[in-house]
Amino acid sequence: MASAVLVSVQEYLRTTYRPDVDYIDGELKERNVGEQPHALIQGILYGMFRDQRKKWHVRPLPEQRVQITSSRYRIPDICVLRADDPKDDIITFAPLLCIEVLSADDRLREVQNRVEDYASIGVRDVWVVDPWKRIGYHASARGFEQPADGVLRVANTAIAVSLEELFREYDES
């Protein structure tokens, strides 16, 4: 097994990676991206949040670095902030919502690790969307739960996204 090359947090923060990578305790971790189903779902979700930003009082950001600890940074596919949250270069507080869109090569354990990292900084709502199985989950440190009515929501807000509508738009794209 090859050993990982360690990178300082300072080097990570001043380097541009294409696509961007997670930084986990000195290691650069590639994210599975680049497939059309992933890109389409990510774009549609971003568009929904962008279109509703004033009504929902949010600011959606695609692929935004989020600091978990001083040695851990994650990049959710979509990070949704409250409209009045700071506009810092890197998010150092709990976003309102983190959304992960699965790629064909994603593994449950790694996705669960991402969800647990978000929960550790106080993110209460994490969505995981699977374009291949056409399902979505509300995820937490306890696991993944499909919404009984097919609608992903953010607690105590007006935010609601119908999975049926999401995948209908996907089919029309």
Rank of each mutant, 00 (worst) to 15 (best):
D171C: 13
L108S: 15
R109H: 14
A2W: 00
D84A: 03
G43D: 15
R31H: 02
I41N: 04
D105E: 12
S71C: 12
V21F: 01
Q36V: 14
V123D: 00
R59Q: 12
F167N: 03
S173T: 08
A2I: 09
A141V: 06
G34W: 03
Y12K: 05
R124D: 11
S8G: 09
T69L: 01
T69M: 04
M1A: 14
T92I: 09
E110W: 02
M48K: 15
L96R: 05
L6D: 13
R134M: 01
V101N: 13
R72I: 15
K54T: 09
D89M: 11
R124C: 00
S3Y: 05
G34R: 08
S140D: 07
K55I: 01
D85T: 01
L152K: 04
K87C: 08
D125P: 05
S162M: 11
V33P: 05
S103Q: 09
Q42P: 15
D85G: 09
T16P: 12
V154T: 01
G143F: 06
V161L: 05
I135T: 02
Y23S: 07
I159D: 02
E110Q: 08
S162I: 14
I41Q: 07
G150W: 03
Y73K: 00
D77F: 04
V123R: 00
N156R: 11
E165V: 07
V21S: 11
I78S: 00
P147N: 10
D25Y: 02
R114H: 13
I78L: 00
N113S: 10
T157W: 09
R65F: 00
K29P: 04
Q64W: 08
N32L: 13
R31A: 10
P37Q: 03
S140Q: 05
A141T: 01
S173Q: 15
L163V: 14
L81V: 06
E110F: 01
R142I: 13
L13P: 01
E35N: 02
M48R: 11
A39Y: 05
